[in-house]
Write a protein that binds this DNA or RNA. Structure first.
Lengths: 114, 114
DNA sequence: CGCTTAGTTCAATGTTTATTGAACAAAGGA
DNA sequence: TCCTTTGTTCAATAAACATTGAACTAAGCG
């Protein structure tokens, strides 16, 4: 539980598959928009249900895209941006640059975050 | 049949999902390595079976990643690099740069091309 | 201690995906 | 015209994926 792959074990196919889903791409966008502020699962509640979020965030964690750290009753989610960039230079940055501009797949009001 | 999405209909999630598969990422790598030479389905035969190639190449075509053009008894496959770059700048280039370096998922001898 | 907030686990369900092999179609060369 | 090469279609199948809701755990607060 809460296993994070080592940098050298991060796989490009797995990263792309993990981001090839509207909910997870929206999570990526939210995380990228909020650099500095740590987000927790509850911050993504407008995207889907609690248990479904557990599922999607676990997929991103297992792919090596996010780091999840328990903090009291919550889990702080952060991007492993430097890790992915060192392993696959430019890939995550390019995706983020485009994902940030994307409208939220769940209504024009966005996800509520910034 | 042989429907290609218009540039403005190309979707980032769909592209990432299409490339989040070892066979399709290998096809992308082969195409990127062979700029100048047009490839046909048969050039990917070391990756999987004929009918499975039809399936994977159709997915890439429907995602807007490749253009497929009949030519005699074959189909010439080419990357829609400029199209994707105009829609999602940098994304495909970054993925290609990393995919090219990737070992073929099907044996150290690579795919036989190049 | 009891309540609330945050998130997980689990089983169930329906959908999509990947893969196979056999049968088929279409173009080109001998 | 027959044969070969190239690729498609189709049905079947197994596996992976996404989604739900109910039950649960764990931490913090009053």
């Amino acid at each position: 539980m809460l296993d994070h792959p080592a940098v050298e074990d991060i796989d490009l196919t797995t990263i792309l598959a993990a981001l090839g889903d509207p909910i997870r791409l929206a999570i990526l966008g939210d995380l990228a928009r909020s650099t500095g502020t740590a987000l927790c699962c509850a911050d993504f509640r407008e995207l889907t249900s609690k248990s479904n979020l557990t599922y999607h965030i676990a997929r991103m964690r297992e792919a090596g895209i996010v780091h999840v750290e328990p903090s009291g009753t919550r889990r702080l989610i952060s991007l492993r941006r430097a890790d992915i960039d060192s392993r696959f230079p430019g890939v995550l940055d390019a995706i983020i640059a485009n994902a940030i501009a994307l409208p939220s797949p769940f209504g024009p009001e966005g996800c509520g975050l910034q």
